[in-house]
């Protein structure tokens, strides 16, 4: 395995295992409020994995080796894309397995796709910003982002339980509208995500090659 990938993937996998514990609980219990909050953790989880994997990452050393910046960018961003896709697929499979598609309609799958896509694009964006501004600067930003996402998720969870009439994400107007044509929404969502991701890869290659902030 590529050593750069091996070093980073450890952090992504440890985060994944914790998250999978939550998903497993849903697969056993099958209650809807549990599933509602599981996707909301994904953006925070991806950003947190990224933050841990970038701590003490030896870019200065890697630059002395015959490793092109392009290869590092593809490895790092490829890992984020793969993990984002893995979360996406597992949530979709879990929703299918527990029959959520029939219970709440296609909005569930649109919701899962949206959250995974946004989460992976934000994490990829953070990765490019780390190369541009350095991990020292970006640590605060990512910690605040992760904290805000987690707090919002917990507030949402508590509100669903204790506040009558609190809206579930799958019932929000935008999600419901997108779920109106799932056969169109999903390909467009995947296409736009990959397009935006490709743009981030290109930006990452330029930024990584020209910036010394991460060295």
């Amino acid at each position: 395995m590529d050593p750069i990938l091996r070093r980073s993937i450890i952090y992504y996998l440890t985060h994944f295992v914790i998250w999978f514990g939550m998903l497993s609980r849903f697969l056993i219990v099958g209650d809807w409020p549990t599933f509602e909050i599981i996707p909301l953790f994904v953006p925070a989880w991806l950003a947190s994995s990224l933050l841990f994997s970038e701590r003490e990452e030896s870019y200065a050393f890697l630059r002395t080796l015959p490793v092109a910046d392009r290869a590092i960018v593809r490895t790092k961003l490829g890992l984020i894309l793969s993990m984002g896709a893995l979360y996406w697929v597992l949530m979709t499979v879990a929703a299918f397995a527990r029959g959520l598609g029939s219970a709440t309609g296609p909005a569930v799958f649109v919701y899962v796709g949206l959250v995974a896509a946004i989460g992976l694009l934000i994490a990829a964006g953070f990765q490019v910003l780390i190369w541009r501004f350095g991990i020292t600067v970006m640590t605060g930003v990512i910690v605040v982002y992760t904290g805000v996402v987690l707090i919002a998720t917990l507030v949402h969870t508590a509100s669903m339980r204790f506040t009558p009439g609190w809206s579930e994400v799958t019932r929000m107007r935008g999600v419901v509208w997108l779920a109106g044509a799932p056969w169109l929404t999903h390909p467009v969502l995947v296409g736009l995500t990959l397009l935006a991701f490709y743009g981030l890869v290109q930006a990452g290659i330029r930024v990584k090659a020209s910036s010394e902030a991460c060295l």
């Binding site: 070093r7 952090y11 003490e56 990452e57 030896s58 050393f61 002395t64």
Partner: peptide, 14 residues
């Protein structure tokens, strides 16, 4: 290449 202050790779078990 030998830099002025060499740094080396770290792993999770640095």
């Amino acid at each position: 290449y030998v830099p002025q202050d060499p740094v080396f790779y770290t792993d999770i078990f640095a």
